[in-house]
Computed example of a mutant assay.
Amino acid sequence: MSTSDEVAEVHSSMVKPGERILDMTAGLGIDSLHFAMKGCNVTSIELDENAAEVLRNNLSSYKNVQVIHGDSVEWLKESRQHFDTIFIDPARRDSSGRHFLFSQCSPDISKSLPDMIAHCDRILVKASPMIDLKSAIRELGIDGCNVIVIGNSRECKEVVLDIRKDISDKPGIECITIGRKSYSRCNTDPDTCNNYRIPITGNILMQPFPAVMKGTGGNVDGYDKLHPFTHLYVADNLDVSFPGQQYIIKDVLPFNKENIRKFKNAYPKINVVARNFPLTAPELAKKLKVQEGGDTMVFGATVYDGSRVLVITGGPIS
């Protein structure tokens, strides 16, 4: 999948100036470009001849980039070069559809990983945001790796597996929301046992960013949660360190027939979210007979005593 400039900038932040980088799936070169701009010495390999020619033209002004047309897996087998970092973005789509297993992608790094490890100190593997992390690590046959989850305030963009020959510390998960402070934890740590509380009017409702939801399963240390499986948090005041969106709670209503009947008159146009709720967001909107949109939010959620509530908030304030 092609990379945006802002995501490629995150990739380049993972390496140091002067590193020798091999980009095994260069495409049109957005990642190679950002590595080159960082001051790395980049070898970019592209299988498609036309794309390789475009790549060569795109990067012609950078003397620290070598562009090669060919099969990067076969090239690496014949190479005696050693790289600080190999970056690879296996193609996840073909004529049969979208794939999530590495063995179904091209190239198949589940087969070529030993060769790659023999030629570098570190491998950065760009993977689908839908990937199952435990299954992916098991498929690659590695003991563990650092995981970087990249997203914005609306969606998780991708997962990067950071595979190193020697991980001196415990493998960790870093959740990067572009333009925000990242959130990190050790990926072998047990899930935190949070305190639980029912939100009330005037509280701050907190929703983790998509990258945090992907990387940690929605578990954020040190905050009061609505329910063990409701990944929403509540606080008395705005907390700038929380890795997610925050909303001022305007009202909290029990999810019952009376409030369902009255809801449309009070909030004819509202954005609907469902978290650990028996209805999906579209189903809840239909049940409440509301039109989605505007600056107000309603979160259908289960709280720690098992009851269901409708939490009405303003739009995000952070």
Rank of each mutant, 00 (worst) to 15 (best):
K225W: 10
H227L: 01
K287Y: 06
D239L: 08
L140M: 04
S12Q: 02
M1R: 13
E155R: 13
E139H: 04
I131T: 11
L47W: 10
D94Q: 06
D166I: 12
L47G: 07
P254C: 00
V125L: 06
A281S: 15
N57R: 13
K170Y: 12
I88K: 03
V273T: 14
Y223P: 07
R122F: 06
D251I: 00
Q207A: 15
M24V: 02
K289C: 14
G293Y: 12
H99M: 06
A136E: 04
L205Y: 05
N276H: 11
V272R: 12
K257D: 14
C120T: 14
T25M: 02
P90D: 07
L28N: 13
M37H: 07
G70S: 00
N187T: 04
K126Q: 04
G314P: 07
L76I: 01
M116G: 01
K264M: 10
T216G: 01
Q245A: 15
D132R: 14
H34T: 11
H34D: 04
L205W: 08
I21R: 05
I200E: 15
E292Y: 10
Y304Q: 11
A36G: 04
A136H: 06
D295M: 13
F299M: 08
C186L: 14
R138V: 05
D169L: 12
T280C: 08
G306W: 00
I148C: 11
A26K: 02
K16E: 15
S61A: 14
G141S: 02
K77M: 08
L33W: 03
K214F: 04
V15E: 04
N187A: 07
V252I: 05
S135E: 14
S128C: 07
Q245I: 08
E139C: 07
K126S: 09
D48P: 09
T192G: 09
S110N: 02
P90G: 04
H69Y: 09
N41L: 14
S184I: 04
T192C: 15
K250I: 10
R92T: 05
G218N: 00
T192N: 09
F299A: 07
M213C: 05
T313F: 00
V272H: 12
R138S: 14
V272N: 13
P199Q: 08
N259S: 01
V220D: 03
E258K: 05
G27D: 05
K165S: 03
R275K: 14
V10D: 02
Q207H: 14
T85H: 01
D224H: 11
D115Q: 14
Y267A: 04
A91W: 05
F277S: 05
N146T: 06
H119G: 07
E78M: 11
V15H: 00
T177R: 01
S79N: 03
D115L: 13
G18D: 06
V67C: 06
A301I: 07
I317P: 00
